[in-house]
Design a protein around this nucleic acid. Structure first.
Length: 801
RNA sequence: GCCGGUGUGGCGGAAUUGGCAGACGCCCGGGACUUAAAAUCCCGUGAGGGCAACCUCGUACCGGUUCGACCCCGGUCACCGGCACCA
């Protein structure tokens, strides 16, 4: 019999809603648990089948915590600023806020349709001015402390979106959103000084419980390297400073390379005898997009500076200087000492320009390739470093450089400051005005929120200015400091702004005086468990850690890390094993699955599909298996079973085993095996009818996974309260032990059969049972028994001669 | 190139971390019920061989350690994700 999921699911969703069944309390005697999912971007397409995987996972975890007696905060909100909405608005001539409201309504009904135990009283919307008031407030605090600054710099410019992108938004040289070409363009931008937090963002990874691959990815992204800055004298008079992680190889530095953007080139204009050639190379580099620069990476190019040379500080020899775009202006000092013997790139370049290659660490064959993996090598051709190991040479040369005033030890990071301006309409206005006398001035906090004005057109202007730039009456204002005429900043913030602190707002979402009260923050933060996608590891996750540390530094939040624990899910693929996409036509709409099988089935299937951390293809026929399982549960409990609420003697062990398995599997996010354990239990119940207590246990364990059917059957059975809020179960370890156990019997490591012995049998008794077995007797007969290995409760291995 | 991960039946995936490989589910085959079908229930289902009890092989590939290896070690291949001239 198929159960009436439509009626049941609607009934319970209505009841949970009207009773605010899962609302969190800001004060409670219970221990708190704050479970968080990444709030969705409310796109026009509605909920994607990718959403329910992490949502259901955390719903299961938080439902279990609630049943375990925690005061649980499991909130939901919408990250609603952003390009797709704006593009839709432009195309359809509808205000983005209208589009956003509509999309949020769709998402809300879909999320409710799936039965999530969110606290619907705490919904946050990043485009609500009561919310973005505080996003702006945080920006002003950063500005006041010098962490937000304006800089003219080459930025990534999307030719289609007509918009500046953060480095993180450029993927393989194209725009992450639209796939169009990204070129480099000089522009004045608001920047956030995330680099000032680089070391702390790295160090504090040791204090949090993140899955290892997230930590590794963040570490790589931050990219700390230690080395020295070394000053090279030049024949022109100026010194040229380089950064190197291999100061030990200084004797092997046979030339230098500076980036085409290096400032010293301007100084040397009169001294260069091949200035036109140099400038031609500079121009060519400037015109290249990042994509072209990386595409051409395989082939080195460059120009030797004529008329100027550098002096190697240890050898005293003159070495040539080149410009080449394989040296980046934005890392280190924008200049390097080239050691072709021990650096692959330098080796290639030296071969191309026929430059000397000197071996300074013995062990490789530098005529064939650069010898880079040489930590164990010994220094040669290196004067006072000869005979030292690489490690010792690094120490000695650093001392020598410091002593001579030629260099210092230095740490560099790959992490760059965060480009925080977008030339777009649908984002938080940056609350800054520009005054001719005072420069950039922050709005007084009393003037927040700075509302996004209504404009006629949402398109970026042709010269790449925000649509706000056309609003002269909005732009023109007075300086809050001196009262002189001033103009507003017309750029808006990137989408990452609102999502960098939303989890704080959930603790106190309606507070008008602060982003959240200190009491609420003290009580709820840090987030105990945050699950999200790997794709946010180097963007959202790092940004929000940065903002949180800043807020901690200015005394707003009580902890320096926002999230205690971070786990990550993988995507669900289409039935064809490919990534789901509209163009492939393999997208599964959760609405369809819910309509046909019900929300409980969808939840169950999505968790049963496979390892939570691995991608798994959708399978419509497997969905049916989960529906069948729920039908069988229904059939077991659709009429009230009489009797007491203890477990039956028949099922006592099975029930205890299921409690143990489901409890631990949820903690480890092994939802697939937890569900398998529930299926096994139901199979046993089908073989031999369960009593009232057995059913109660089943419904309790099922409740986090399939809450609607669990609550309905709970009510039919007349148990107290609801399954959703029933106490979680403990198991009795003594009930997990069987009276007899099956021991595997191996001969020479190969399985030959099994014997059954009492579970408390000692080794001798087990051996006796093995030798009493007729089959074993037959095999062993007439052969010498050399050794018997007994693994308690597992197996016996007989080694024959 | 560098960093991380994965490789197990026809399919999704299990395996208490060195101890009975394939739990659970899907698909498929057979049977019951039905006028029939669907649904449901029962049986079977890694491959090969044998009438049978049973035997042999089997966790990407090659080798090693071990009484015993999906698991540990060395090497190879394939796929996925991230970074990508970061000096």
């Amino acid at each position: 019999m198929s159960y009436e999921f439509q009626r049941i699911e609607k009934k319970w969703q209505g009841r949970w809603d009207s009773e605010h069944a899962f609302a969190a309390r800001n004060a409670s005697d219970k221990p708190k648990f704050y479970g968080l999912i990444e709030f969705p971007y409310p796109s026009g397409e509605g909920l994607h089948v990718g959403h329910p995987r992490p949502f259901t996972a955390m719903d299961i975890v938080t439902r279990k915590r609630r049943m375990q007696g925690y005061n649980v905060l499991f909130p939901i909100g919408f990250d609603a600023f952003g390009l797709p909405t704006e593009n839709f608005a432009i195309k359809n001539k509808i205000h983005p806020s209208v589009v956003t409201k509509r999309n949020i309504a769709t998402f809300t009904s879909q999320l409710k349709m799936l039965g999530y135990g969110f606290d619907w009283d705490r919904v946050v919307d990043t485009t609500d001015h009561e919310y973005y008031k505080w996003t702006q407030w945080i920006f002003i605090q950063m500005f006041k402390r010098g962490l937000a600054y304006k800089a003219s710099m080459p930025v990534n410019w999307c030719t289609s979106c007509k918009c500046v992108l953060a480095n993180e938004e450029v993927v393989n040289g194209v725009c992450e959103r639209c796939g169009s070409e990204v070129v480099r363009r000089e522009k004045s931008q608001w920047m956030l000084k995330i680099t000032e937090y680089a070391q702390r963002l790295l160090d504090d990874l040791d204090t949090v419980d993140y899955v290892e691959r997230v930590k590794i990815q963040q570490k790589n992204w931050i990219g700390r390297s230690t080395g020295c800055e070394v000053d090279f004298a030049t024949t022109a008079g100026e010194t040229l400073r380089v950064f190197t992680t291999r100061p030990d190889t200084l004797f092997g530095a046979t030339y230098m390379v500076i980036s085409p953007e290096h400032a010293i080139l301007k100084t040397w204009e009169t001294k260069l005898t091949n200035l036109t050639e140099v400038q031609a190379y500079q121009d060519a580099s400037a015109r290249k997009s990042d994509f072209e620069r990386t595409e051409m990476a395989k082939v080195k190019s460059g120009v030797r500076l004529s008329g100027v040379a550098a002096i190697n500080p240890v050898t005293g020899g003159e070495i040539p200087i080149f410009i080449s775009d394989y040296v980046l202006a934005t890392y280190g000092t924008g200049a390097i000492m080239a050691v072709p013997g021990h650096d692959t790139r330098d080796w290639e370049f030296a071969k191309l320009f026929d430059l000397p290659i000197i071996e300074v660490v013995a062990g490789g064959d530098i005529t064939q390739a650069a010898y880079t993996d040489c930590d164990t090598g010994v220094m040669v051709n290196s004067g006072f470093l000869n005979g030292l190991t690489v490690a010792d040479a690094k120490v000695k040369i650093a001392e020598w450089l410091t002593d001579k005033g030629l260099g210092t030890e230095k740490v560099n990071f790959k992490l760059r400051d965060w480009v925080f301006s977008r030339q777009r309409y649908w984002g938080e206005p940056i609350p800054i005005v520009h005054c001719e006398h005072c420069g950039y001035v922050a709005l007084p906090e009393s003037e927040l929120p700075l509302l996004l004005p209504d404009v006629e057109k949402y398109e970026t202007t042709d010269n790449g200015e925000s649509p706000l730039a056309a609003m002269t009456d909005w732009i023109n204002t007075t300086c809050p400091q001196c009262g002189a005429p001033a103009t507003r900043e017309t750029d808006t913030m990137p989408q990452w702004a609102g999502s960098s602190w939303y989890f704080l707002r959930y603790t106190d979402p309606k507070n008008a005086d602060a982003l959240a009260s200190r009491d609420a923050l003290d009580y709820w933060t840090p987030v105990d468990w945050y699950n999200g996608g790997m794709e946010h590891t180097t963007l959202h996750l790092l940004y929000s850690r940065f903002w949180h540390k800043f807020l901690y530094d200015i005394g707003v939040v009580p902890t320096s890390e926002p999230y205690t624990k971070r786990t990550s899910h993988a995507f669900i693929l289409g039935e064809d094993g490919q990534k789901m996409s509209k163009s492939r036509g393999n997208v599964i709409n959760p609405n369809d699955t819910v309509a046909e099988y019900g929300a409980d089935t969808l939840r169950l299937y999505i968790m049963f599909i496979g390892d939570f951390e691995k991608e798994a293809p959708w399978s419509t026929s497997s969905v049916k298996g989960c529906k069948r399982f729920l039908d069988r549960v229904w059939n077991l409990a659709e009429t009230r079973i009489g009797g007491g609420e203890g477990y039956s003697a028949t099922h006592e062990k099975a029930v205890n085993r299921a409690i143990a398995k489901v409890s631990s599997d949820i903690e480890e996010m092994k939802f697939n095996t937890a569900i398998a354990a529930l299926m096994t239990l139901v199979n046993e119940f089908s073989d031999s009818p369960p009593n009232r207590g057995d059913i109660k246990a089943l419904l309790t364990l099922l409740s986090p996974f399939a809450p609607h059917i669990a609550d309905e059957l709970w009510e039919i059975q007349g148990f107290k309260g609801t399954a959703s809020l029933a106490p979680w179960l403990d198991f009795d370890p003594s009930k997990l032990i069987d009276d007899t156990i099956t021991i595997a019997v191996q001969v020479g490591g190969k399985l030959k059969g099994t014997v059954t012995v009492p579970s408390d049998a000692d080794d001798e008794a087990v051996k006796a049972a093995v030798f009493a077995d007729s089959k074993v007797a037959r095999i062993v007969e007439g052969r010498e028994l050399k050794r018997v290995i007994v693994v308690p409760k597992k197996l016996v291995n007989l080694i024959l001669g």
